[in-house]
Write a protein that binds this DNA or RNA. Structure first.
Length: 631
RNA sequence: GCCCAUGUGGCUCAGUGGUAGAGCACUUCCUUGGUAAGGAAGAGGUCAUCGGUUCGAUCCCGAUCAUGGGCUCCA
């Protein structure tokens, strides 16, 4: 809310016509009014003010009261004035706020409110003394966290385990013995998540991926950046691109989402941005811009931007302005976006917890809960497919408001059937956040820690809050049901892929994600020509293949390949040149050697990686041409 | 942010109140090999940074920064 307050000798206005948003006024009211010795409060209600009318009004009333007490005007004139801000509230909510403000002021001062939405001509004679003019920007308190805690205080939750056959077992999370209960005996992954998330059981070990990500030349710390911003070497970049490619494929080819791209920085002075920031505990990066008017340099005081801390801003802002008909629903959008959160120093951890991370987000805007739930199921299944394809350990946790659980339990069971897993269900006595229902796939690392990957949230409130409406079949505005979802941060997938590999005796990535799929090692440089030809042939079939042409002994080159977790190692020498049969070491089969032709090898690889994204190698395929990034 | 631990060549680590050492990697040479380390030589370090104590600090003390763990928070 923006206020311009003027202490005047005289103030008068007359109505000259209606604007399209004019409020109805009492016909008895005079068209022309004049006040002596008033305090005129020009007031602009801004978008976001309606979120917490009581708070914003209280603040405005206090500010006005403070000035009025000093100046002792005869009357206060509350004058709706749209021109103090470029970020106006909806007219209907502006009227609500203005009326509340009038009521608030009436308690201590006589007040007159000019009509909203009329063209008016006005005359004002400002007194001109130092206190006679002031302006102020009233924003809601940064108290959201507290108020949320207050809201959450009387939300009760209970937990149960829901099986894919619909069977329920209530569990008491006050009692740690549940971890050894028979209910969890057959579901070790779910047990780990409950232990880690609910009982805070910690192994106090460093996840081995923290050093492995560097040793494998996937990711590394970047000393010239801030903590929590990593650099990715070519192998890490390939992993990242493959995972992103998968996310994109789901979004664009399978779900036919519209893809958008929105800014990375947003105006911190906009109330909707600030409002969200507060719910993230103001853990954002601030971006200041140079003050162009300043001759001595420095930053513009009036401008502050934030690096976005979630992916929703751009999309929501775009849709707020869009004209949407019920006939177009559901609408699906995809955005691949980097988010920035200024996490506390001690919260950062390898690839698990970063200050910048990448989220491929899918949002579906739906007609009603039914349609929302259909979308929910579609998204859930896609994300479950990825978790299976990436071959990582995960468990499912649902969080649901009681009434929705009663109504939609069957649909959840359907999803659990699809996943062939049970889930931990948290049932909330009432709404705690904007969602009525959400689930998380909790990935599990090699030290029994867990972290959230994919999530889908059925949001029944935000559309109203952000003004995302569609026109219904009766021609009225209605709020959408929003399905928020993300496959999860790409960096976290990388984290869990490395962790999952390290749980095994012979660590290895899934073939479709292996930076190099086949390594060819000539026995000596006499066989390099043959090896190059073989490499070219395999490469043409769409397999990531490279060739170790360095001057190391055979044994050493094998060792290097093993340390890189190479899935297939092909040694070529005189025997292979003569017979055309390759000796292939297969890491998925206990590093045993098999005799295959190159066609059979390609066929096997193609078969295993069927339907998965593919990208070419993004490193030189001759190892002698590759720099050593680490070690 | 708080508590604990760590910081020595590109990597993994020894070591000492009198300014440093190994293995690997790197460069050059020899070796032309059959499934986890063939051989030799060379080059590489203000011992995280800044202060303090000391005749003298990489070592002792303090602060800062970075990394890991716990709390808190979270995708």
């Amino acid at each position: 809310m923006q206020l311009l307050i003027i202490h005047a000798d005289e103030f008068g206005y007359s109505l000259t016509g209606k604007t399209p948003v004019a409020e109805e006024i009492d016909s008895n009211l005079k068209d022309e009014v004049c006040f002596e010795e008033p305090l005129v409060v020009f007031c602009t209600v801004e978008r976001g003010d309606e979120n917490d009318v009581a708070d914003i009004v209280e603040r405005a009333v206090n500010a006005i009261k403070e000035i009025a007490n000093k100046l002792k005007p005869r009357i206060l004139v509350l004058y709706p004035y749209a021109h103090l801000s470029s970020n106006l509230a909806e007219p209907s909510s502006a009227i609500v706020v203005l009326n509340a403000l009038k009521t608030g002021i009436e308690f201590f001062y006589p007040v007159y409110r000019a009509p909203f939405g009329w063209y008016k001509s006005f005359k004002i004679a400002c007194k001109g003394h130092p206190l006679s003019e002031s302006s102020m920007h009233i924003v809601a308190a940064p108290l959201l966290k507290k108020t949320r805690e207050d809201v959450v205080k009387d939300v009760e939750s209970r937990f149960l385990i829901l099986n894919s056959d619909g069977g329920e077992t209530a569990i008491d999370l006050k009692n740690k013995d549940i971890l050894n209960d028979d209910v969890l005996k057959d579901f070790p992954s779910l047990r780990k998540v409950i232990a880690y998330e609910e009982f805070k059981v910690r192994e106090c070990e460093t996840p081995p991926s923290v050093s492995a990500m560097r040793r494998l030349e996937i990711a590394d710390y970047e000393e010239n950046s801030d903590s929590g911003h990593l650099r990715f070497y070519p192998k890490g970049t390939l992993l990242y691109k493959l995972l992103s490619g998968w996310a994109e494929d789901i979004a664009l080819n399978s779900l036919k989402c519209m893809e958008i791209e929105t800014p990375l920085i947003y105006d911190w002075n906009k109330s909707e941005i600030k409002g969200q920031g507060e719910s993230f505990h103001e853990r954002h990066y601030s971006v200041f811009v140079p003050d162009e008017k300043s001759k001595t340099g420095g930053f513009a005081v009036s401008k502050e931007f934030v690096l976005r801390f979630a992916g929703d801003f751009g999309l929501f802002s775009m849709l707020k302005d869009a004209k949407i008909s019920y006939k177009q629903l559901p609408l699906r959008f995809y955005e691949f976006s980097k988010s920035f959160r200024y996490e506390k120093r001690g919260e950062l951890s390898g690839l698990k917890r970063l200050r910048s991370f990448t989220m491929p987000d899918i949002h579906s805007f739906c007609l009603d809960i039914e349609e929302g739930f259909n979308e929910y199921q579609v998204l859930y299944k896609k994300y479950a497919d990825l978790a299976e394809a990436a071959d990582i350990e995960y468990a499912i946790v649902f969080r649901i408001v009681e009434e929705y659980y009663d109504k939609y339990k069957d649909k959840i069971v359907e999803l659990l059937k699809y996943s062939k897993k049970p889930a931990l269900i948290e049932i909330l006595s009432k709404m705690k956040h904007y969602w009525a229902l959400k689930h998380e796939f909790q990935g599990i690392d090699s030290v029994n820690g867990s972290c959230q990957l994919s999530t889908v949230q059925l949001d029944v409130e935000d559309a109203k809050r952000y003004g995302i409406n569609f026109i219904s079949d009766t021609g009225e505005k209605a709020g959408c049901i929003i399905c928020h979802s993300s496959i999860g941060a790409i960096e976290r997938w990388m984290y869990l892929l490395i962790e999952e590999a390290l749980k095994k005796d012979i660590p290895v990535f899934p073939l479709w994600l292996s930076p190099t799929q086949v390594r060819i090692i000539p026995v000596s440089d006499k066989f390099v020509d043959f090896a190059v030809e073989l490499k070219e042939n395999i490469y043409k079939s769409g397999v990531r293949v490279d060739l170790d042409d360095r001057d190391f002994s055979l044994g050493k080159k094998i060792m290097f390949a093993e340390e890189e977790w190479l899935p297939y190692i092909v040694v070529v020498g005189r025997k292979e040149v003569e017979s055309g049969i390759l000796s292939v070491r297969n890491r998925y089969k206990g590093r045993k050697n098999f005799n295959l032709t190159s066609e059979e090898l390609v066929k096997e690889i193609k078969n295993v990686t069927k339907d998965m994204p593919y990208r070419n190698l993004i490193l030189p395929d001759m190892l002698s041409k590759r720099p050593v990034f680490f070690g």
